[in-house]
Each structure stands twice: as structure tokens, then as C-alpha cells.
């Protein structure tokens, strides 16, 4: 990527940043709407950049642009929406778009795993917690953003830096600009030599996972176990297990009111 396009990208990013700044939750509706429009414009510019045909081969570009667009639209709206439930749902959209992108990259197993785990498990958990901790009305902490300028500036700089690295060719540091993908990328390492190109991605991933990375695989399992135990331990409520002993045994005359046993709550 030549420096000219870097500058174009920076400009697009800047426009998007301004739009994002305006779109973050704040009082009044017109700044948000203006911000969203600006962001949309920036996105369009970005996608147009992606769609320029002479840089890319035909065919998959269209899907890329669409999926990237959906992902980014979802992401922007997710972080700017005042209601957490909407953010969660929009995040599902982002996940699905990302899965699509992964499919484009011929990582089917990963894409499906993403959908199942994220959209199926993690997001559901999030939704449960949102229901648990919901406050009625629009609490102030949802309708105002904190330090939007600093946040957007940080994000912008981050994005610009990463993208900047793409466009630079520095001698001797070994970080050259990314070359165009070649046909060699179609060949995957780790497959048995006699397998043909018709081997599925899942098989390939599985083979790599269980041969080269088997230790890490086991560790991941342990990690999941620890996380389960930890999560339960964190949230456990101590319940007083006292039974009503009755006056003959020296307890109070009345049985305790329903629900009073175990009423006292102490966080762990």
C-alpha cells in the first residue's frame, strides 16, 4: 500500500472519529444522529476503498465489503447505543459478520466455533446478566459517555498507528509491508503429505491442534475448569442453614417468617 492510500485512510478514520465522538451517548438527539450520519459516510468511504477492483482479485471482494460493512456498522452502533440490550444484540450481528469474514478466509471450523461460542453462549450469558442487573428507566450511566474526546482520540490514534504500520516498508526490521497473498497460501501446513486439497478445514485444524499444540490444548481445558470453579466461588451466597427448633428446645415461639431463614446475605 503506498503512502497515498495511508493518507486517505487517515482522513477516513478522522471523519469516522468525529462522527463517533458525536454519536456517543449524550444529551440531545441531533448530535447523535449527525454523528451516525458522519460515521456512515466514513464507512462508505472505507468500503469504497476496499472495493477498488484493481487491488483485489474478483469474486470475493463483494462479500468482503458487505460483511465488513455489517461488522463495522454493528460495532459502531453497539458502542453508541444507550441501551445495553441493544448493544448485546448488535454484538451478535458483529459476531455473525465476523464469522462470515472467517468463512471468506476459508476458516470454516473457526467461523462456526465463533458463532456457537460467542453468539450461542457468551452473548446469552451477557443477556442474562443484563436482565439481572437492569435498572428501570434510562440511568445516567447509560445515557452519558465519559471523556468521549479522550476515548475517541485514543481509538483513532490506535487505528491510525496500526494502519500506518501496514503502509511502511522499513529496511532491516523485518517488518515489511504485507505482500499480496499468493497461491501458496492455499497450501496448509501440517497436513499429511498424501492428503489432497480436498481435505476439510476442520480436519486440518484438528490435526494441528492435537499434534503440534496438544499441551496447550490440555491447558485450555484446565483453564476452563478453573474458570468454572472461580465463577461459582465468586458469586456464591452464604446461606444460613438454621432450622426452627421450637420452644421446647429453647428457640423462639413463632416459626420464622417464610424466607427469613437464609435471609441474611453476605457476599463471599
Amino acid at each position: 500500500m503506498s503512502p497515498h492510500f495511508s493518507i486517505y485512510l487517515y482522513a477516513v478514520f478522522a471523519l469516522g472519529a468525529v462522527g463517533l465522538y458525536l454519536a456517543l451517548p449524550q444529551r440531545g438527539r441531533w448530535p447523535v444522529r449527525t454523528g451516525l450520519i458522519l460515521s456512515a459516510a466514513a464507512l462508505a468511504g472505507l468500503l469504497a476503498f476496499f472495493g477498488r477492483s484493481f487491488l483485489f482479485t474478483e469474486g470475493t471482494t463483494f462479500y468482503f465489503v458487505v460483511l465488513a460493512g455489517i461488522a463495522l456498522v454493528g460495532a459502531v452502533r453497539m458502542i453508541t447505543h444507550p441501551k445495553p440490550v441493544y448493544s448485546a444484540i448488535l454484538f451478535v450481528m458483529v459476531v455473525l459478520a465476523t464469522a462470515g469474514l472467517l468463512l471468506l478466509l476459508r476458516a470454516e471450523f473457526l467461523a462456526m466455533a465463533l458463532v456457537i461460542i460467542y453468539a450461542g453462549a457468551i452473548l446469552v450469558t451477557y443477556l442474562f446478566v443484563i436482565m439481572l442487573a437492569q435498572q428501570s428507566g434510562a440511568p445516567v450511566y447509560d445515557t452519558t459517555a465519559r471523556e468521549p474526546f479522550a476515548a475517541v482520540a485514543a481509538g483513532f490514534l490506535l487505528a491510525a498507528t496500526i494502519v500506518g504500520m501496514l503502509g511502511e516498508a522499513r529496511a532491516g526490521t523485518g517488518a515489511e509491508s504485507l505482500p499480496v497473498a499468493s497461491e501458496a497460501a492455499d497450501a496448509w501446513e501440517g497436513l499429511p503429505a498424501d492428503e489432497s486439497a480436498a481435505t476439510s478445514h476442520t480436519l486440518a485444524v484438528g490435526a494441528t491442534l492435537l499434534t503440534r499444540y496438544v499441551v496447550v490444548f490440555e491447558l485450555a481445558g484446565v483453564l476452563l475448569l478453573v474458570a468454572i470453579v472461580g465463577a461459582i466461588a465468586l458469586v456464591r451466597r452464604r446461606v444460613e442453614e438454621t432450622e426452627w427448633e421450637g420452644p421446647a428446645a429453647g428457640g423462639p415461639v413463632e416459626p420464622p417468617a417464610p424466607g427469613s431463614i437464609g435471609r441474611r446475605v453476605e457476599p463471599f
Binding site: 471523556e147 479522550a150 476515548a151 485514543a154 481509538g155 490514534l157 490506535l158 498507528t161
Partner: peptide, 9 residues
Amino acid sequence: AVVMVFGVV
């Protein structure tokens, strides 16, 4: 966190 991000940048 803001400061951290700026630092990373």
C-alpha cells in the same frame, strides 16, 4: 485505561 492506550500508541 485511557492513559494506558495512549502509552501503547
